[in-house]
Simulated scan of single mutants.
Amino acid sequence: MSEILQKTIPYDPLAEVPLPGISPLDWADWLIVDEAYGGQMARREALLEGQRDAVYALDESGFEAACELLDKIVAQVLARDDYVREGDVVTCPDGRQVVLDRASPLVTAARLVQEDLCLLDKRGDEHVLVGAVLCFPASWMLAEKYMRPLVGIHEPVADYTDNIAKRVQRLFDGVRADRPLWRFNALWYHDPELFQPRSAFEPRRIGAGSGDGPYLRSEKQSILRLPESGAVVFSIHTFVLKREDVAGA
Protein backbone atom coordinates (compact mmCIF):
# COMPACT_ATOMS: atom_id res chain seq x y z
CA MET A 1 0.00 0.00 0.00
CA SER A 2 2.78 2.46 0.88
CA GLU A 3 4.04 2.31 -2.70
CA ILE A 4 0.98 4.20 -3.97
CA LEU A 5 1.29 7.02 -1.41
CA GLN A 6 3.13 10.29 -1.85
CA LYS A 7 5.02 12.08 0.90
CA THR A 8 4.78 15.54 -0.64
CA ILE A 9 2.49 17.48 -2.94
CA PRO A 10 3.58 20.40 -5.16
CA TYR A 11 0.79 22.77 -4.06
CA ASP A 12 -1.20 23.53 -0.92
CA PRO A 13 -4.16 21.13 -1.08
CA LEU A 14 -5.83 22.76 1.94
CA ALA A 15 -5.93 26.24 0.42
CA GLU A 16 -9.48 27.50 0.04
CA VAL A 17 -10.32 28.67 -3.48
CA PRO A 18 -13.78 29.37 -4.95
CA LEU A 19 -15.13 26.99 -7.58
CA PRO A 20 -14.09 26.27 -10.25
CA GLY A 21 -10.65 27.38 -8.93
CA ILE A 22 -8.89 27.55 -12.31
CA SER A 23 -5.30 28.75 -12.77
CA PRO A 24 -2.90 28.89 -15.75
CA LEU A 25 -0.68 25.81 -16.13
CA ASP A 26 2.92 25.78 -17.29
CA TRP A 27 3.37 22.99 -19.84
CA ALA A 28 6.41 21.77 -17.92
CA ASP A 29 4.16 21.10 -14.92
CA TRP A 30 1.45 19.16 -16.77
CA LEU A 31 2.67 15.58 -16.34
CA ILE A 32 4.19 14.66 -12.98
CA VAL A 33 6.46 11.76 -12.12
CA ASP A 34 6.62 11.53 -8.33
CA GLU A 35 7.79 9.04 -5.72
CA ALA A 36 4.62 6.96 -6.11
CA TYR A 37 5.08 6.48 -9.87
CA GLY A 38 6.11 2.82 -9.68
CA GLY A 39 3.38 1.79 -7.25
CA GLN A 40 0.62 3.72 -8.98
CA MET A 41 1.61 2.46 -12.42
CA ALA A 42 1.63 -1.12 -11.14
CA ARG A 43 -1.93 -0.57 -9.88
CA ARG A 44 -2.90 0.91 -13.26
CA GLU A 45 -1.44 -2.04 -15.15
CA ALA A 46 -3.35 -4.48 -12.94
CA LEU A 47 -6.62 -2.63 -13.54
CA LEU A 48 -6.07 -2.42 -17.29
CA GLU A 49 -5.33 -6.14 -17.32
CA GLY A 50 -8.06 -7.36 -15.00
CA GLN A 51 -10.85 -4.77 -15.16
CA ARG A 52 -10.39 -3.02 -18.50
CA ASP A 53 -14.11 -2.61 -19.16
CA ALA A 54 -14.42 -0.67 -15.89
CA VAL A 55 -11.52 1.71 -16.49
CA TYR A 56 -11.33 2.22 -20.27
CA ALA A 57 -13.66 3.41 -23.00
CA LEU A 58 -13.11 5.12 -26.36
CA ASP A 59 -15.72 5.97 -28.96
CA GLU A 60 -14.50 5.68 -32.54
CA SER A 61 -15.18 9.40 -32.98
CA GLY A 62 -12.41 10.09 -30.45
CA PHE A 63 -9.77 7.85 -32.01
CA GLU A 64 -7.87 10.56 -33.92
CA ALA A 65 -7.85 12.82 -30.86
CA ALA A 66 -6.51 9.89 -28.80
CA CYS A 67 -3.67 9.46 -31.32
CA GLU A 68 -2.91 13.17 -31.08
CA LEU A 69 -2.87 12.94 -27.28
CA LEU A 70 -0.51 9.95 -27.42
CA ASP A 71 1.90 11.90 -29.64
CA LYS A 72 1.79 14.87 -27.26
CA ILE A 73 2.44 12.72 -24.20
CA VAL A 74 5.32 10.87 -25.88
CA ALA A 75 6.94 14.18 -26.85
CA GLN A 76 6.44 15.52 -23.32
CA VAL A 77 7.88 12.52 -21.47
CA LEU A 78 10.83 12.10 -23.82
CA ALA A 79 11.93 15.61 -22.88
CA ARG A 80 12.72 14.10 -19.47
CA ASP A 81 15.85 12.11 -18.61
CA ASP A 82 13.97 9.20 -17.02
CA TYR A 83 12.14 8.03 -20.17
CA VAL A 84 14.11 6.40 -23.01
CA ARG A 85 12.81 5.52 -26.47
CA GLU A 86 14.27 2.87 -28.74
CA GLY A 87 12.24 2.45 -31.90
CA ASP A 88 8.62 1.92 -30.89
CA VAL A 89 9.43 1.03 -27.29
CA VAL A 90 9.61 3.51 -24.41
CA THR A 91 11.32 2.51 -21.17
CA CYS A 92 9.57 4.24 -18.28
CA PRO A 93 11.06 5.51 -14.99
CA ASP A 94 10.04 2.27 -13.23
CA GLY A 95 11.72 0.11 -15.87
CA ARG A 96 8.53 -1.01 -17.65
CA GLN A 97 8.74 -1.09 -21.42
CA VAL A 98 5.71 0.27 -23.26
CA VAL A 99 5.21 -0.45 -26.96
CA LEU A 100 3.84 2.60 -28.76
CA ASP A 101 0.71 0.94 -30.11
CA ARG A 102 -1.20 3.44 -32.25
CA ALA A 103 -4.02 0.93 -32.63
CA SER A 104 -4.72 1.50 -28.92
CA PRO A 105 -3.59 5.09 -28.41
CA LEU A 106 -5.41 6.00 -25.21
CA VAL A 107 -4.37 2.89 -23.29
CA THR A 108 -0.80 3.30 -24.55
CA ALA A 109 -0.72 6.91 -23.35
CA ALA A 110 -2.12 5.91 -19.96
CA ARG A 111 0.58 3.26 -19.53
CA LEU A 112 3.23 5.98 -19.77
CA VAL A 113 1.97 8.47 -17.19
CA GLN A 114 0.40 8.53 -13.73
CA GLU A 115 -2.44 10.75 -14.88
CA ASP A 116 -5.88 9.43 -15.72
CA LEU A 117 -6.86 10.75 -19.15
CA CYS A 118 -10.31 11.94 -20.27
CA LEU A 119 -11.12 13.12 -23.81
CA LEU A 120 -14.03 15.47 -24.42
CA ASP A 121 -15.38 16.60 -27.78
CA LYS A 122 -17.86 19.39 -28.53
CA ARG A 123 -21.29 18.08 -29.49
CA GLY A 124 -23.82 20.83 -29.98
CA ASP A 125 -23.58 23.21 -27.05
CA GLU A 126 -21.68 20.91 -24.68
CA HIS A 127 -18.52 18.85 -24.42
CA VAL A 128 -19.11 15.10 -24.27
CA LEU A 129 -16.82 12.47 -22.71
CA VAL A 130 -15.85 10.40 -25.78
CA GLY A 131 -13.00 8.44 -24.20
CA ALA A 132 -11.09 7.86 -20.98
CA VAL A 133 -8.69 5.73 -19.04
CA LEU A 134 -9.96 6.23 -15.50
CA CYS A 135 -8.12 3.87 -13.18
CA PHE A 136 -8.25 6.05 -10.06
CA PRO A 137 -11.82 7.36 -9.80
CA ALA A 138 -12.80 9.11 -6.56
CA SER A 139 -16.43 8.05 -6.07
CA TRP A 140 -17.65 8.02 -9.68
CA MET A 141 -17.91 5.45 -12.46
CA LEU A 142 -16.72 5.75 -16.04
CA ALA A 143 -19.62 3.64 -17.33
CA GLU A 144 -22.12 6.20 -16.01
CA LYS A 145 -20.28 9.22 -17.47
CA TYR A 146 -19.10 7.88 -20.84
CA MET A 147 -20.70 9.70 -23.81
CA ARG A 148 -22.43 12.15 -21.48
CA PRO A 149 -22.03 15.96 -21.49
CA LEU A 150 -20.38 18.01 -18.75
CA VAL A 151 -23.56 18.62 -16.76
CA GLY A 152 -24.38 14.91 -16.82
CA ILE A 153 -20.84 14.03 -15.80
CA HIS A 154 -21.12 16.18 -12.68
CA GLU A 155 -24.51 14.93 -11.52
CA PRO A 156 -25.21 14.75 -8.62
CA VAL A 157 -22.39 16.99 -7.28
CA ALA A 158 -24.08 19.29 -4.76
CA ASP A 159 -21.86 22.32 -5.42
CA TYR A 160 -22.23 22.02 -9.22
CA THR A 161 -24.94 24.65 -9.67
CA ASP A 162 -26.34 25.81 -13.00
CA ASN A 163 -24.17 28.92 -12.75
CA ILE A 164 -21.00 26.89 -12.21
CA ALA A 165 -22.03 24.50 -15.01
CA LYS A 166 -22.25 27.42 -17.43
CA ARG A 167 -18.89 28.78 -16.26
CA VAL A 168 -17.23 25.38 -16.72
CA GLN A 169 -18.71 24.99 -20.20
CA ARG A 170 -17.40 28.45 -21.13
CA LEU A 171 -14.04 27.38 -19.75
CA PHE A 172 -13.96 24.28 -21.96
CA ASP A 173 -15.05 26.39 -24.93
CA GLY A 174 -12.38 28.99 -24.31
CA VAL A 175 -9.31 26.97 -23.30
CA ARG A 176 -6.56 27.57 -25.86
CA ALA A 177 -4.09 25.03 -27.20
CA ASP A 178 -1.17 27.19 -26.07
CA ARG A 179 -2.58 27.99 -22.62
CA PRO A 180 -3.51 24.93 -20.52
CA LEU A 181 -5.25 25.32 -17.18
CA TRP A 182 -5.44 23.45 -13.90
CA ARG A 183 -7.31 23.16 -10.61
CA PHE A 184 -7.25 20.87 -7.58
CA ASN A 185 -9.56 19.32 -5.03
CA ALA A 186 -8.96 17.62 -1.69
CA LEU A 187 -10.91 15.27 0.58
CA TRP A 188 -10.04 13.15 3.60
CA TYR A 189 -10.48 9.39 3.16
CA HIS A 190 -10.28 6.36 5.43
CA ASP A 191 -9.19 4.08 2.58
CA PRO A 192 -6.06 4.96 0.54
CA GLU A 193 -7.11 2.69 -2.36
CA LEU A 194 -6.79 4.53 -5.68
CA PHE A 195 -9.60 2.68 -7.46
CA GLN A 196 -12.75 3.87 -5.68
CA PRO A 197 -15.64 3.77 -8.15
CA ARG A 198 -19.12 4.57 -6.88
CA SER A 199 -22.41 4.78 -8.71
CA ALA A 200 -24.23 8.10 -8.62
CA PHE A 201 -27.23 6.08 -7.45
CA GLU A 202 -25.45 4.65 -4.39
CA PRO A 203 -25.12 6.49 -1.08
CA ARG A 204 -21.59 7.68 -0.32
CA ARG A 205 -19.66 5.03 1.58
CA ILE A 206 -19.00 5.93 5.20
CA GLY A 207 -15.46 7.24 5.51
CA ALA A 208 -15.04 8.10 1.82
CA GLY A 209 -14.37 11.82 1.74
CA SER A 210 -16.01 12.21 5.16
CA GLY A 211 -13.56 14.82 6.41
CA ASP A 212 -12.00 12.89 9.30
CA GLY A 213 -10.02 10.13 7.61
CA PRO A 214 -6.28 9.52 7.99
CA TYR A 215 -5.52 10.01 4.27
CA LEU A 216 -5.75 13.13 2.15
CA ARG A 217 -6.70 12.49 -1.46
CA SER A 218 -6.11 15.40 -3.81
CA GLU A 219 -6.50 15.51 -7.58
CA LYS A 220 -4.48 17.88 -9.75
CA GLN A 221 -6.83 18.30 -12.70
CA SER A 222 -5.43 19.75 -15.93
CA ILE A 223 -7.45 21.06 -18.88
CA LEU A 224 -5.86 21.45 -22.31
CA ARG A 225 -6.92 21.65 -25.93
CA LEU A 226 -5.37 19.49 -28.63
CA PRO A 227 -4.52 21.85 -31.51
CA GLU A 228 -5.32 19.55 -34.46
CA SER A 229 -8.52 17.79 -33.36
CA GLY A 230 -9.73 20.58 -31.09
CA ALA A 231 -10.66 17.98 -28.45
CA VAL A 232 -10.23 18.90 -24.78
CA VAL A 233 -8.13 16.72 -22.49
CA PHE A 234 -9.02 16.53 -18.80
CA SER A 235 -6.17 14.78 -17.00
CA ILE A 236 -6.11 13.82 -13.33
CA HIS A 237 -3.00 13.24 -11.22
CA THR A 238 -4.01 11.63 -7.92
CA PHE A 239 -2.10 12.29 -4.72
CA VAL A 240 -2.78 10.27 -1.57
CA LEU A 241 -0.89 11.31 1.57
CA LYS A 242 -1.04 10.23 5.17
CA ARG A 243 -2.38 12.97 7.43
CA GLU A 244 0.98 13.39 9.15
CA ASP A 245 2.60 14.17 5.80
CA VAL A 246 0.18 17.00 4.99
CA ALA A 247 1.45 20.42 6.03
CA GLY A 248 -1.06 22.27 8.18
CA ALA A 249 -3.34 19.26 8.66
Rank of each mutant, 00 (worst) to 15 (best):
D59W: 08
A132T: 09
P180N: 04
E244H: 10
D178T: 03
E86Y: 11
D173N: 15
L142W: 03
I4S: 00
G131P: 08
L48D: 04
L119W: 04
I32E: 11
M41L: 14
G131L: 12
A249S: 11
D121P: 15
K242R: 15
G95M: 06
P203D: 07
V232N: 00
A200Q: 04
A57K: 05
I73W: 01
A132P: 13
A186L: 02
S139P: 00
E60F: 09
D34K: 14
P214W: 08
G87W: 01
L47Q: 07
V151R: 12
P18G: 02
P13S: 01
H127N: 02
Q97R: 15
L100P: 07
G21T: 06
R111Q: 09
G62E: 05
I4P: 00
K72T: 15
I206F: 09
E45Q: 12
D53L: 15
H154M: 01
D12K: 12
V157T: 14
D159M: 15
D101G: 14
R217G: 05
P192A: 03
L120D: 01
R225P: 08
E115C: 03
Y160H: 15
W140I: 03
S199F: 05
L31R: 10
L241G: 02
V84P: 13
A54P: 08
A132L: 14
Y37R: 12
R43M: 03
Y56I: 06
Y160D: 09
M1S: 10
A79M: 04
R102H: 15
T108A: 05
P156A: 11
S2D: 03
Y189K: 10
D162A: 14
V77S: 11
L106R: 01
P20R: 03
D94M: 05
R148P: 11
D245W: 08
L48G: 06
S218K: 07
V99P: 06
A109D: 01
Q51D: 13
E86D: 14
R44Q: 03
S2P: 00
E202G: 12
P149R: 12
T161K: 14
L171H: 11
G209Y: 04
V157D: 10
V90W: 00
K166G: 13
V233A: 02
L58N: 00
V168I: 10
T8K: 07
E68I: 14
G50M: 14
V84F: 14
V168G: 05
K122T: 13
D191F: 09
V90S: 07
T108W: 05
G207D: 07
S222R: 11
Y56V: 14
A36T: 03
V55P: 01
S210I: 07
D101W: 07
L171A: 13
P149H: 09
F201M: 08
A249T: 04
P197G: 02
L47E: 06
Y56P: 04
L216S: 01
R102E: 11
L224S: 15
